[in-house]
Design a protein around this nucleic acid. Structure first.
Lengths: 207, 207
DNA sequence: CACGCAATAGGACGAGTGTCCTAGGCTCTC
DNA sequence: GAGAGCCTAGGACACTCGTCCTATTGCGTG
């Protein structure tokens, strides 16, 4: 078993535990037990707990980046791509109901801890934000692309938080459907429209 | 300085610290220092740290309940009342940008800790959910009142999480405006309206 | 076989945690 | 003034944490 493999196992186990139990609440002993190595051996691969966190965030960034690239390859249509993002909360509903959103919960925790890796975790949000923005630009919403991207992000965070709190799958599906409808209206009303215009078109149909 | 006063001070300080630093990250020493009492004295008023958490949650429940009652007294119109709720993220924007939503972040943390007080914290969400539901019933949306209440809750959680992550006040205001427009359309379309395609899609169409 | 290096194990250390215990100060009442 | 009871202070305790140190294993090379 080479050292590189062990290192990957550590990152993998830490990723899962940080997600399920939180960063602070996850001890070295817990990770070591999950990987079945001794606590001491740990410091051969990482020089501190913060170092592991950095590696975990980097791994998540890599993973999500690859996911988004795959979506771009699969879906030529920006609406389909954004739709994929909206569907995340359904696709990952089991984990989300049990542990919340991996990005949102980590960012929130690191902020409360005043942890220096908060900025790195924020890059995860920025990754999605930028990707969504580009899709909305492709839809012809140049001027408001970033605002629309943030709206989609807010949707996913709100749904994830409440689905986690209430363990409600039907709620997820309702909100996803609502968001798909919004996206359709958004795509049907490209270019010139200001934000308020969108609302008028989308609003009544939504209720 | 009577014991009741000290107890109230402890709950107050713990409330603020739990909100800003998280429950687990806040030590007895930190609370004791904030209230200027000794660590030992603590156990005269509370029998454990969990006991303080319970008291803090109870205090928040009291506070929010009073707030909602005040809104009902101030605003005879359900739309105005729901609007007040939507405005929370603007009214409390400073705290939200710095520390997130007090309800959402606490619930998420306690869930990750597997803490027994998670149910109590969930009552905070339920309080708002039920109150919003009643307002939507008053608007004539009996059948979907709960779903609409959850939608408003999801909005507030999503906005709070992202405002916290990105420290973006303009984003808050844009989303609040969007939500007000949605609410207006919602109020203009009372009673009979079904969820407009939502119902149709809850089933297989989603996957 | 002997050597060297990557990899691992396991214990020691100091700091910090929640909890508990005991002694003492305060303020009212008789 | 003395006693009683509420309130407080501060240290001791057992435990866990992240970190570090040293000894030892396993394996490929000369």
């Amino acid at each position: 078993m080479g050292g590189a493999t062990t290192r990957a196992h550590i990152v993998e186990a830490a990723d899962r535990l940080f997600y399920r139990q939180g960063y602070e609440h996850t001890s070295f002993a817990a990770i070591a037990e999950a990987v079945r190595i001794s606590r001491g051996n740990f410091y051969y691969h990482f020089k501190s707990k913060d170092d592991i966190l950095t590696a975990v965030i980097a791994a998540r960034l890599d993973d999500r980046r690859r996911m988004l690239e795959q979506w771009e390859a699969d879906e030529p249509d920006p609406v389909g791509r954004i739709g994929r993002f909206i569907e995340i909360v359904v696709t990952n509903r089991a984990d989300i109901q049990n542990y919340g959103c991996p990005v949102g919960t980590l960012t929130t925790e690191l902020a409360k801890l005043g942890h220096p890796a908060l900025n790195d975790a924020g890059d995860l949000f920025t990754l999605f934000r930028e990707w969504l923005r580009r899709q909305f630009v492709l839809l012809g919403h140049e001027a408001e692309a970033d605002a629309l991207a943030m709206h989609v992000l807010a949707f996913s965070q709100g749904v994830a938080t409440l689905a986690h709190a209430f363990q409600d799958e039907d709620f997820i599906r309702r909100e996803v459907q609502r968001m798909h409808d919004w996206l359709s209206a958004c795509a049907a009303n490209p270019g010139t429209a200001r934000h308020a215009g969108n609302e008028d078109a989308v609003g009544p149909a939504n209720v």
